[in-house]
């Protein structure tokens, strides 16, 4: 499974790509497979402040709904409008066109609390992700 090196990962299967204090957030390849066909994304609200680990968005598949948690504390600064008409992008391109929202991160140094690609791959392999 593909876990890009330039991203950091959470135990709840979100990724974050941090540039300065702006972080793009999505779900991992592993997560999109587990979720299966995404039919709806409840978009995050711009300007909404979220604490680390708190629900910021909801992804729905045919049979279930999943909370998407903020990898770091911050304020939602943007969301992926394209998901409104094409939620399947989360499945097709989870690290690219299927991103969910952008976070203005309060404390970028907190990035170190998240897993690297290698650590996340190990986490998945150990089965701890379930």
């Amino acid at each position: 499974m593909n876990f890009p090196e330039n991203l950091r990962y959470t135990r709840t299967h979100e990724w974050i790509a941090l540039t300065g204090n702006k972080g793009k957030v999505g779900v991992t390849e592993y997560a999109q497979k587990e979720i299966s066909d995404v039919v709806f994304v409840e978009l995050a609200r711009k300007g909404h402040a979220v604490a680390q680990g708190k629900a910021a968005s909801v992804v729905e598949s045919v049979k279930a709904a999943f909370d998407i948690y903020a990898p770091l504390a911050g304020v939602i600064s943007d969301f992926n409008q394209a998901l409104e008409s094409n939620p399947g992008l989360v499945n097709q391109d989870p690290y690219g066109a299927g991103w969910l929202f952008e976070l203005e991160v309060t404390d970028p140094s907190a990035l170190n609390t998240l897993m690297t690609a290698a650590q996340y791959a190990e986490f998945i392999q150990s089965g701890a992700g379930h």
Binding site: V39, F40, A55, V58, E60, S61, K63, A64, A65, D67
Partner: peptide, 12 residues
């Protein structure tokens, strides 16, 4: 649209 409902979404 059952994903709105409690048997899937529990407390939310």
């Amino acid at each position: 649209l059952q994903a709105r409902e409690q048997h899937i979404r529990r407390e939310r």
